[in-house]
């Protein structure tokens, strides 16, 4: 299911990145330093309560019988409906998966090539490439969505799955480029020199040395791209057309035009999936976030 795919992808991405971190040596352990400020701890737990409240409410209502939001009794009705009677939802889910993997694939190929190019060689447009790759990240999503919509209309591209794929590839590119570049920059340049010294040519260096070394970065970039794509709502909203409904768009239409409690069940499944799949890797989160 959608909810199950996403965190798994991230987990693998994190695992790779974590290994790298551990090799570099993480922050020193602070075993003997208890958190003294109790006020900050109180605030932390209140915030956690705040962050979890909506998830709790969703799960609660997903077991509610009856259409009303008011509690009317326990039931599995909506879970049954979710599985049995929602062909449109499954269509949207399938679209999401297609777009996610398609756009991740494309952006990983293009972005990795560019990262290799800028990390290994210096050329005139190098700083242009790295700056340009970074700008789309800081633009508000709405601007990206609107400009793409106007662009597609201008060149006469019919809105649909294809335009969604293009848009997703575009906003994934900067992330792929950054992740792979970071990975490449960490590697010791003398390794490449050593390979050349031992008689490898450019192509052999690329395929036998650089790409294998960057593989963890490439993999985590790919999975990050999959995640970003599965999550996106705003940009997709603008560039989608007939046949291009993704899961977030489907949820949106459910919210807008008649809430069916099926959405509670769907959300609860997605929440549960997130929790179940992030929990085993909680120990890696620190290294992940502490970079």
């Amino acid at each position: 299911m959608h909810a199950l795919k996403k965190p798994k992808a991230i987990r693998i991405a994190i695992l790779w990145r974590t290994r790298r971190m551990l090799r570099k040596g993480g922050a020193a352990a602070r075993k003997f330093m208890p958190a003294r400020s109790s006020l900050s701890n109180v605030i932390y737990w209140v915030v956690i309560g705040f962050l979890f409240l909506p998830l709790f409410v969703l799960v609660l209502y997903s077991f509610n019988s009856g259409r009303q939001a008011t509690w009317q009794g326990f039931s599995f009705e909506w879970y049954q409906k979710l599985v049995m009677a929602s062909p449109e939802l499954w269509r949207a889910f399938l679209n999401s998966v297609i777009i996610a993997f398609g756009s991740a694939m494309m952006s990983t190929i293009i972005g990795t090539l560019a990262a290799v190019g800028t990390a290994r060689y210096s050329f005139k447009l190098k700083s242009f490439v790295s700056t340009m790759s970074f700008v789309p990240m800081i633009l508000p999503e709405i601007v990206v969505g609107v400009s793409l919509l106007i662009f597609f209309a201008g060149v006469g591209l019919k809105l649909g799955l294809a335009t969604v794929w293009i848009a997703h590839t575009t906003f994934n590119l900067p992330f792929v480029y950054l992740l792979v570049s970071a990975r490449l920059e960490e590697s010791d340049p003398s390794i490449v020199e050593a390979a050349r010294d031992l008689g490898a040519n450019e192509m052999q260096i690329l395929f036998r040395i650089i790409l294998p070394m960057a593989l963890p970065g490439i993999l985590s970039a790919f999975l990050t791209a999959v995640t970003l794509s599965l999550e996106d709502f705003v940009i997709t909203f603008f560039v989608t057309g007939p046949g291009g409904t993704t899961l977030p768009l489907y949820i949106y239409s459910m919210i807008r035009f008649g809430v069916s409690p099926v959405i509670n069940a769907l959300s609860a499944v997605m929440v549960a999936g997130t929790v179940l799949l992030i929990y085993p890797m909680r120990n890696f989160l620190k290294v992940f976030a502490a970079r």
């Binding site: 996403k6 997605m270 909680r282 976030a289």
Partner: peptide
Amino acid sequence: AMRLFLVIVPFWTNFLVRIYAWIA
């Protein structure tokens, strides 16, 4: 790790699902 985990779980829950939850 545990404290980050607790922050990240809601954060990785789908954006629209969270909006919907607030409507609920």
